[in-house]
Amino acid sequence: MGTMSQRVNGVIARAKGAPVEVATIIVPDPGPGEAVVKIQACGVCHTDLHYREGGINDDFPFLLGHEAAGIVESVGAGVTDVAPGDFVVLNWRAVCGDCRACRKGKPWYCFNTHNAAQKMTLEDGTELSPALGIGAFVEKTLVHAGQCTKVDPRARPAAVGLLGCGVMAGIGAAINTGGVTRGDSVAVIGCGGVGDGAIVGAALAGATTIIAVDTDEQKLEWARKFGATHTVNARDKDVVAAVQELTGGHGADVVVEAVGRPETYKQAFYARDLAGTVVLVGVPTPEMTVELPLLDVFGRGGALKSSWYGDCLPTRDFPMLTELYLQGRIDLDAFVSEEIRLDQVEEAFAKMHKGGVLRSVVLF
């Protein structure tokens, strides 16, 4: 531990399924390649709930929170990309620059991403596992400096912090992985934060038909605000038939599956045009399997792709999307349903289940 560790308040999940609690966190001084960031805003993402439920792994206690923006407070030895005072968005895939993906010039696939080497702890010395290597429901967090991406400080922290996870995953699924371009037809299945991000991305890229699919009318209403030209309620309609009908009988050029279930994946597979692209950005659970006639896989052609974090390169994508936000060309503010305090994270999880919010954002 450095000479000067700091004590701050943060939200932890102590045991599987237990309500989260605010605890005192010890944040060490940054070591080589590390940075301490004063958090200004952090979104409440479904993945945080997943950690609390033991759905990721059993490395309790977890320091939750990972969709965040803040100000660099201090940096360790050898850090040159960011400096104290910089306004940054945190990311959970700091590229190494050295693995086989990075060497091939495809750093968004980096197979050896960095996190901080030191651990944050509870007061009794118990090591914390930070959610997605970040842990940002806390006044200050310790990360690898590569997890900090400088963006324009005029941007609202609550809005651009969401680029740290869900919104970026969605925008990237459409633009980076799906390659959506002008005049395309796009269908998005599942219109939460990630799905709405995909709708924003499709609209930004110039797609002319953007079909939002969900079972919740409220979510479909939100999807329209983000740029959906058509909506399909999967409770009332056959999704594949509805998408085909809205695309001249052909199916969509790109279908983004933002649920991560076998049933919705099959819908995505059959709802696309010949030689179209399916992008899976919804995260399945380990026991799920999908069965498709191999002749259909061959005969329909095109591409079945998975999108890791929207195949984003934070240094390229975060500043660009922040700029588009400041220019009024993408509405990141619309993702922020409510601003809450650190001690309201448990309530935010409950709201997530009921579906009344798109994103609750903790402000510091």
Score class of each variant (00 low, 15 high):
Ala13Asn: 08
Arg14Glu: 15
Gly17Trp: 02
Asp29Trp: 00
Gly31Leu: 07
Lys38Tyr: 05
Gln40Met: 13
Asp48Gln: 07
Arg52Ser: 11
Glu67Lys: 13
Asp81Glu: 15
Val82Ala: 07
Val88Gln: 03
Val89Gly: 06
Cys96Ala: 04
Phe111Ser: 12
Asn115Gln: 13
Leu122Val: 09
Gly125Phe: 05
Thr126Glu: 10
Ala131Asp: 06
Ala131Phe: 02
Gly133Asp: 06
Val138His: 03
Thr141Leu: 00
Thr141Val: 06
Ala145Gly: 05
Lys150Gln: 03
Asp152Val: 01
Val160Gly: 06
Leu163Ala: 10
Gly164Thr: 05
Met168Ile: 05
Ala174Ile: 07
Asn176Ile: 10
Ile189Thr: 05
Ile189Trp: 04
Ala202Glu: 03
Ala203Lys: 15
Ala203Pro: 00
Leu204Met: 14
Ile211Tyr: 10
Asp216Asn: 15
Asn233Met: 07
Val239Arg: 12
Val240Ile: 14
Ala242Pro: 02
Leu246Met: 14
Thr247Val: 13
Gly249Pro: 05
Asp253Gly: 08
Thr264Asn: 09
Val279Thr: 04
Val279Trp: 03
Val281Glu: 04
Thr285Leu: 05
Leu304Asn: 15
Ser306Glu: 03
Tyr309Lys: 00
Phe318Ser: 02
Asp331Arg: 09
Asp333Gln: 08
Phe335Pro: 01
Phe335Thr: 02
Val336His: 09
Ile340Cys: 07
Ala348Trp: 13
